[in-house]
Design a protein around this nucleic acid. Structure first.
Lengths: 342, 342
DNA sequence: TTGTATGCGTTATCAA
DNA sequence: TTGATAACGCATACAA
């Protein structure tokens, strides 16, 4: 048990008086090596505390066994849940995971991509930043046939598969539900961006209005960054409206919750005066009173699916280009914040 | 712009009719290379889309420029905040971050450690799992002088520095506050483990009782896994007590919040009947009504400090063995859940 | 200031 | 079934 130096296959080979080639093969569990030698080698490796050198292997094989993930932020409930799912799959498949966050900045996202590229990840999982307006920074990957996969915050690209839910449909269901509860003037709070998830949700909202012969009123759309603080601001905006709305559909639970709190403080009764629906099924939706009706967004599953998909491709499975989009199931969870006739 | 093949320093050298050694040195910005040649090399590198091969370099230098992080779980508010802090520092210092989760299992933690070891991380950040009872799985790192650093969930070890808050003191303050609010029978909900953070909090709780001549009553200690579900169960336990408590100090906001919800549903008035204090300053503490008094636990800062500490050591800074413990400031945030005489 | 030559630990291609 | 050996791309000791 030497302290400083690492044990290599040369050490093993020398000690057993065989060639490094055989040792290498044995360690890979190559069936061509005889059981006997294999056993000898394994035992000695164990005894000498051998560990394979990944760099040398990577250098040789030109693969890293590492997948990269670029996320807009790490410290949100949804994203951390997704990461947990990704990590779980990656780890169980023997892949390493390297993670970085774009902090919702397109510029930072490009940096992250470059770093991932230089680290030669075998594949890349990405959820786009708020203000990413071009996805050319992934071209270098595609050019080298390194698969890239978007999840949640996606963009159209014919070489990149997207894993997401049907945001339009989910928003449609949410809005329809509010209408069914008697709402006629429904505010929609969404992000100030053209990121797919938000435009789709807006589209679903509009569709539900139209199908129910309700006019679309642009003054009922509030755009902000969907943070907690933004929720308080939104409440002010709502209270300042010449005619108060009777329903609010928010593209994010966090923002919905703080908005509800602010409105409640001003004497607004929920759901009687205003019914609320959020998005994500964040744990806070169960803490706010009344509990928030929301869209269940399976973050953990999304992480698992995305990672599994990427890895199975890396392991020589189905080509990615075949499928353009993988849609996960989501569902409306009805709670008290929107139930007017219980 | 060849598609398949990577550009190497050999390509650059050949094209410029100089040696690879010079190219290598120039790319490292070695001052020994003349400005002129350096410029030529940089320009060509840019033009040909050269990117350095980290494996080759790592293989050569025996360093990876990567730090590993093992966390009990990724999908909790606190932990994801810590990760964000770690990632921020690592990234800005040019270090890669590889992450894995032990899922609160000591066994899985050992696996993670082994993987990190095989990936030859330059340093390791660890927050221990619930049921980790030995830390021998980090010996292999220490033997090779790979620095290991604990944060939040720590264990005593004379070669491992710990970054944490003064849990005992924080719990002491929390309990003292409840006593000052008139509480005399204070329940403490904590984890079913001997992990430092929980034993320390319990110790702080006891100390506050003793200093105020209140008897310690083991039947007032509720142990569970501090999850949301556990909070509901804890509420049942509390309501089943022969004599109801008048204060509750929970080692975790999430659990506190669900416990409060369950108690409220049963007609318990908070803080009048029972005052509540949580731990962590999780966002839900601001959503629950009344808002939860809690200990502010600076997760992001903790991540930053831990990462910075490790990296500065790696870059040849202060040796880690000098400092045993880095204590971060925490503070009691008083909100309505514990304020009896407003 | 630049060049030569070697080793880092594996894997893969031959040949035996 | 095994062995010898050439890459893989880079960094550095030594020489020039």
């Amino acid at each position: 048990m030497d302290k400083g130096k690492d044990v290599t296959i040369y050490d093993l080979a020398e000690k057993l008086n065989i060639s490094v080639a055989t040792v290498s093969r044995a360690l890979k569990d190559d069936p061509v090596v005889s059981k006997k030698t294999k056993k000898k080698i394994f035992e000695l490796a164990e005894e000498m505390g051998y560990r394979s050198n990944n760099f040398a292997r990577n250098l040789r094989t030109q693969r890293t066994n590492t997948i990269g993930a670029i996320l807009p932020r790490l410290n949100s409930y949804f994203m951390s849940t997704v990461i947990a799912g990704i990590e779980h799959v990656a780890n169980s498949q023997g892949y390493n995971l390297i993670i970085s966050q774009s902090s919702e900045s397109g510029e930072k996202e490009q940096q992250c991509a470059r770093t991932m590229f230089n680290n030669r990840v075998d594949g890349l999982l990405v959820s786009l930043a708020y203000d990413t307006d071009t996805i050319r920074h992934f071209d270098s990957f595609l050019k080298k046939d390194i698969p890239v996969l978007f999840f949640d915050r996606c963009a159209e690209h014919d070489q990149i598969t997207s894993v997401l839910i049907d945001n339009r449909k989910a928003a449609y269901e949410a809005t329809k539900h509010l209408i069914a509860q008697g709402c006629r003037r429904i505010v929609h709070i969404t992000a100030h961006t053209s990121r797919n998830v938000y435009t789709e949700r807006l589209a679903g909202y509009r569709q539900a209005l139209e199908e129910n012969q309700l006019p679309f009123d642009g003054s009922l759309i509030i755009r902000n960054n969907l943070s907690q603080e933004a929720g308080y601001e939104a409440a002010k905006d709502i209270l300042a409206m010449p005619r108060l709305p009777d329903g609010v559909f928010v593209a994010n639970d966090n923002c919905a919750v703080s908005c509800m709190l602010a409105l409640k403080k001003q004497g607004v009764s929920i759901p009687a005066d205003m019914a609320f629906v959020g998005f994500n099924n964040d744990p806070v939706s169960m803490v706010i009173e009344p509990n928030l009706t929301t869209i269940n967004y399976p973050g953990y599953e999304m992480g698992e699916v995305a990672a599994r998909y990427l890895i199975s491709h890396l392991m020589g499975g189905a080509p990615m280009t075949a499928t353009n989009t993988v849609l996960l199931r989501s569902e409306l969870i009805i709670r008290d914040s929107s139930l007017r006739n219980p």
